[in-house]
Computed example of a mutant assay.
Amino acid sequence: MKIEGRTFIISGGASGLGRATALALAARGANIAILDMNEDTGAALAAELGGPSRARFYQVDVTDTASVAAAVTAAAEWSRSAGGAPLGGVVPAAGIGLPALIMDGKHRPARLDALDLVLGVNLRGTLDLVRQALPHIAAASPDGGEGPDGERGVVVMVASSAAFDGQMGQVAYAASKGAVAAMTLPMARDLSRHGIRVLTIAPSLFETNMTKAMSDKVRKSLLNSLEFPKRPGKPEEFAALVIHLIENTMLNGEVIRLDGASRMPARL
Score class of each variant (00 low, 15 high):
Ser262Arg: 08
Ala70Trp: 07
Pro148Leu: 12
Gly145Pro: 15
Arg124Pro: 00
Ala140Phe: 05
Ala74Ile: 03
Asp259Ser: 08
Gly95Asn: 13
Ala139Ser: 07
Arg54Val: 02
Ala261Pro: 02
Thr249Lys: 11
Ile243His: 02
Gln59Glu: 13
Leu98Ser: 14
Leu49Val: 15
Leu268Ala: 12
Lys217Glu: 10
Ser225Lys: 08
Leu258Lys: 03
Ala66Val: 12
Ala22Gln: 02
Val118Gly: 12
Ala100Met: 05
Arg267Ile: 11
Ala114Phe: 09
Arg219Leu: 10
Ala266Asn: 13
Thr249Arg: 15
Phe238Arg: 10
Ile196Thr: 15
Ala140Val: 08
Leu35His: 05
Val91Asn: 06
Gly145Thr: 14
Leu245Gln: 06
Ala138His: 02
Asp259Phe: 01
Tyr173Glu: 13
Ala139Asp: 10
His107Cys: 11
Asp128Gly: 13
Glu227Met: 11
Ser176Asp: 00
Val118Trp: 06
Leu258Gly: 03
Ala181Asp: 05
Glu48Ser: 12
Pro86Ser: 13
Asn248Val: 09
Arg257Pro: 00
Glu146Pro: 14
Gly125Cys: 14
Ala261Trp: 13
Val158Leu: 14
Ala20Ile: 04
Asp190Arg: 12
Arg56Thr: 07
Gly51Leu: 05
Asp190Ala: 05
His136Trp: 10
Ala30Tyr: 01
Ala181Val: 01
Asn122Asp: 12
Val158Lys: 08
Asp190Gln: 11
Phe8Leu: 04
Asn38Asp: 12
Gln167Glu: 13
Leu205His: 03
Pro148Ser: 15
Leu49Ile: 09
Arg124Trp: 04
Gly12Trp: 00
Leu251Ser: 13
Ala110Leu: 04
Ala46Thr: 11
Ala110Ile: 08
Lys106Ala: 14
Asp113Pro: 10
Asp149Thr: 15
Ala163Val: 13
Tyr58Lys: 08
Ala26Arg: 15
Ala46Asn: 13
Asn252Glu: 03
Arg124Glu: 02
Val242Thr: 03
Pro203Lys: 09
Gln132Ile: 14
Leu205Asp: 00
Arg193Met: 07
Ser15Gly: 03
Leu49Ser: 05
Val60Thr: 08
Ser262Ala: 07
Asn252Met: 07
Leu127Ile: 14
Asn31Gly: 15
Gly42Gln: 09
Arg56Tyr: 02
Met183Ala: 03
Arg111Pro: 06
Gly233Thr: 01
Ala240Val: 15
Val158Asp: 01
Thr41Met: 08
Gly144Gln: 10
Arg193Cys: 00
Asp128Leu: 06
Gly29Asn: 00
Gln167Thr: 10
Val171Ile: 06
Glu4Ala: 15
Asp216Thr: 09
Val158Thr: 10
Leu101Asp: 09
Gly12Asp: 00
Leu119Pro: 06
Ala163Ser: 03
Leu119Lys: 04
Glu146Phe: 13
Leu98Phe: 11
Ala181Asn: 04
Ala44Pro: 15
Ala46Met: 03
Gln167Met: 10
Val68Gln: 11
Ala133Lys: 11
Ala202His: 04
Leu241His: 01
Val121Glu: 03
Ile201Phe: 01
Glu48Phe: 05
Met168Asn: 12
